[in-house]
Design a binder for these strands. Structure first.
Lengths: 215, 215
DNA sequence: TTTTATTAAAGATTATTTTCTTTAATGGAA
DNA sequence: TTCCATTAAAGAAAATAATCTTTAATAAAA
């Protein structure tokens, strides 16, 4: 009852978590170049970040570096993939097979990062019953009957006005993590994780920074 | 030469910028409900955020609220859309028409947020020459000849190992803002804005938070 | 073997962002 | 009109994250 007392018991800061897949990508390229070891100093120089930030970020995983040598590339790739949950494949339901949902169904990259969309739900009769990229689309009302202990992730790509409501249904149906692509802030109990990924928010940041540079 | 001296001259914090599209979405729903005014207190309560954060975020725009009334919904929508650059349509080139690039071509929502993909580039002979969702795909080598003053945004969805190189080509070709969907950290001079949007980074955060809840 | 340069990691400092507090304004009720 | 409750906005404090500094370890060079 002593280890890691107080202070958010071992919660990894979000900025660190977001950087980890970058390290992973870097390491995979290093592996291709047959590098056996790589030091935080080198990672930092190549990526243009602070070296202590690299060690601090990596210290949240179980890996330990070797003084004057660095980290073993293969080991670090394994540890990171495992830590980030990219190793085991999570099943997911997609809610909203409109434009954006469709887009996600076309991205097979998700598979490599541990997520497989096994079914989609929509209300539009034009898409219900069809199959996109091998994924069958059901009417939302079918979700009730399809509750599946093994599907814990739900991807939310419905129009804004339905977002909160559908999210609630998802939670009731046993979804534990909602990947929210709508710009709506979902309000649910703290038993369900909501991960916001609004593409348009990122677009807004980019536009703003571009404007700043111009003037 | 005095206004706003020192301290990053009027740079809007990224967290604030990222929240703005959420307010915008909220306001559009409020408009549907025929609300004429909405106060920061209400926005905050409905969205589950801190009220002072709302006023602070909105204060970066030109809008001013009315004491005891709040903000005018229509005016705030206009101001936000304008501030975020969602009003004018920016043209964009897509680099990498693979899985993820394909996905983005299927998302027509981008249009509403001020971005239109006018052409795509790839090296795969299987896609070069084709048209996806009305967007023609050219060989990357064609980019040189197609330089267009009016296309300032480039979307980067190539495989990781080509990311840095293609980004450099983009910058040389006059691209001012790179929307980077690869997990690679792009290194360019500070004349070009690089906006990182790694879907997998968000996935990593979600997986981690889900793991934390379970234990 | 001894020295040197490089490294990971822990701790301290600084910067940024969020939350809390105070102030002044004002529409509506009494 | 006068008072009260609610509000925006500015400023202070707290929490969080990034950067800087120090320490100890150790491969490689002398």
């Amino acid at each position: 009852m002593s280890s890691e007392n107080k202070k958010k018991e071992g919660v990894v800061p979000e900025p660190s978590l977001r950087r980890m897949p970058c390290y992973l990508a870097y390491l995979k390229l290093a592996k291709r170049r047959n590098q056996e070891y790589v030091s935080s100093t080198h990672i930092a120089r190549d990526m243009g970040v602070d070296p202590t930030q690299v060690t601090k970020d990596l210290s949240y995983t179980s890996i330990v570096g070797k003084t004057r040598v660095g980290y073993e590339v293969n080991a670090l790739i394994d540890v990171l993939e495992d830590f980030l949950g990219f190793r085991k494949l999570d099943k997911a339901y997609l809610f909203g097979a409109g434009s954006l949902g469709n887009a996600l169904l076309h991205d097979h990259g998700l598979d490599q990062y541990g997520l497989r969309i096994v079914a989609a739900f929509d209300i539009d009769p034009k898409v219900v019953g069809r199959t996109i990229e091998g994924v069958p689309i059901f009417h939302v009302s079918e979700f009730e009957k399809m509750k599946d202990k093994n599907v814990e992730v739900g991807i939310l790509t419905v129009p804004a006005e339905f977002a909160q409501n559908v999210a609630q249904q998802m939670a009731e149906g046993g979804i534990k993590g909602i990947w929210n692509f709508t710009p709506i802030r979902i309000r649910l109990g703290d038993k369900v994780v909501v991960q916001d990924t609004s593409l348009y928010a990122h677009l807004a940041v980019m536009f703003n920074r571009m404007k700043n540079i111009k003037k």
